[in-house]
Structure formats: structure tokens, C-alpha cells
């Protein structure tokens, strides 16, 4: 009992050491999640560093032994959306993220399919994109993804399913074309139709 309480005190080098060790192992995952949210490697690393430091500063409130990956992903996500609210209008974000993603592909030898997937992902509504990434790539259960996003499990399920359909529609239609603005118009049409089709089920 007293051990646990001592562990929660502000200065505890041993506990900090354990916390730091685990946090360090999560950095690659935070970078990957940030990359999918921002679509831009530099902005993503800034975001991941901010999230890492927020997690470090809040370490006293984290209960060791619980899911630190989900906890840090939640911090990163909150950080992303609070920055977005400050500086970007929603409509600009989608278009800008799509455009940045076009230049964010470093390796010209990378398989074309991955390239297309990146660009298509950038065109999804943010809440669908993050749900699909968390469940489809991050290895989170629907329940964990719901905790990270602060929404109901059913909402996550429906977002993932819509994201899958929309992604497929974009990939098949070639709506990820590299021609900047035109791709934006095509994207809205495709997303509107994909959404219509999936809600009529």
C-alpha cells in the first residue's frame, strides 16, 4: 500500500527510470502514428516529440503496468487536434495534408502501391483515417482505439468500416492522382459517394 503511494510521489528516480525505458520503446510507434496524422515527416517528428515530452511531464499520473502505448497515443492525438484547432481550418487541412503527402515520399524506389495508399489515406476524413490506422496498423483493439479517440466502441467500428470502403473507392478510381487541386475535387466526389453507399446499407 505505502509502496504504491511512494511510487506516485513527484520525485522517484527508480520509477522514472522504468517509465523512461518504456517510453523510449514507444518512440518509433509515436513517430509512425504522428506521420499518419500529419502526412509530413518533419511535422510528425515535432508532434511526436511534443507528445513524448507531455507524457514525460505527466508521468506521475500514469499508472505503471497499464497500457502506456494507448496512453501516449491518446496524448499525441490530443496534441495534434489542439494544434490543428489553433492553426488550421478543417477544409484547408485535408487539402494541405494531401498535397504535403505528395512530396513526403522520400524513397522514389518505394513500391508504387504504398505511395498510392499514402495519398489515398491523406484524403480520408481525419476521424476515419485515425480509426483505420489505430486498428488496422497500430494493433489496437476497437476498445483501445475508442479510449484513444474518446468515443464509443461502435463509433470506432463504423469509422473503420467506412474508411476501408472509402480507401478502396479512392484506390480504384485513381482519385489519389498527383495533380494537386483537381485531386481535391475528385476526392470530395468520391468520398461523398462512398459515404452515401456505405450509409445506405
Amino acid at each position: 500500500m505505502s509502496e504504491a503511494q511512494v511510487g506516485r510521489s513527484p520525485i522517484d528516480p527508480a520509477r522514472d527510470g522504468i517509465f523512461k525505458k518504456e517510453l523510449v520503446t514507444l518512440i518509433p510507434h509515436l513517430r509512425a502514428f504522428a506521420r499518419t496524422l500529419t502526412g509530413d515527416p518533419t511535422a510528425a517528428d515535432d508532434l511526436a516529440q511534443d507528445a513524448m515530452m507531455k507524457a514525460w511531464d505527466a508521468r506521475a499520473s500514469f499508472q505503471l503496468g497499464t497500457n502506456m502505448k494507448a496512453w501516449t497515443f491518446m496524448i499525441l492525438r490530443n496534441q495534434f487536434y489542439s494544434e490543428k484547432r489553433r492553426s488550421w481550418r478543417q477544409s484547408q487541412l485535408d487539402q494541405e495534408a494531401a498535397e504535403r503527402t505528395l512530396v513526403a515520399v522520400d524513397d522514389p524506389e518505394a513500391p508504387v502501391a504504398l505511395d498510392e495508399l499514402r495519398m489515398s489515406l491523406a484524403m480520408l476524413p481525419p476521424e476515419q483515417r485515425e480509426a483505420l490506422i489505430l486498428v488496422g496498423a497500430g494493433g489496437f483493439a476497437y476498445e483501445e482505439a475508442a479510449d484513444i479517440c474518446g468515443c464509443a466502441v461502435g463509433t470506432v467500428k463504423s469509422r473503420v468500416s467506412r474508411a476501408r470502403r472509402a480507401l478502396q473507392a479512392i484506390l480504384e478510381s485513381g482519385g489519389y492522382d498527383r495533380d494537386g487541386g483537381a485531386a481535391g475535387d475528385a476526392m470530395h466526389a468520391i468520398l461523398a459517394d462512398a459515404e452515401r453507399l456505405s450509409t445506405q446499407r
Binding site: P28, L117, R118, A137
Partner: peptide
Amino acid sequence: AIGVKLRQMFDEVVNE
């Protein structure tokens, strides 16, 4: 196929 590519894309960054 999309699922496989999605994980591949994510893991690419994780492995950097």
C-alpha cells in the same frame, strides 16, 4: 491487400 499495405506503411516508419 489494403490491410497488409497499411501495416507495411506503418511498420516502415516504426522500423526507421
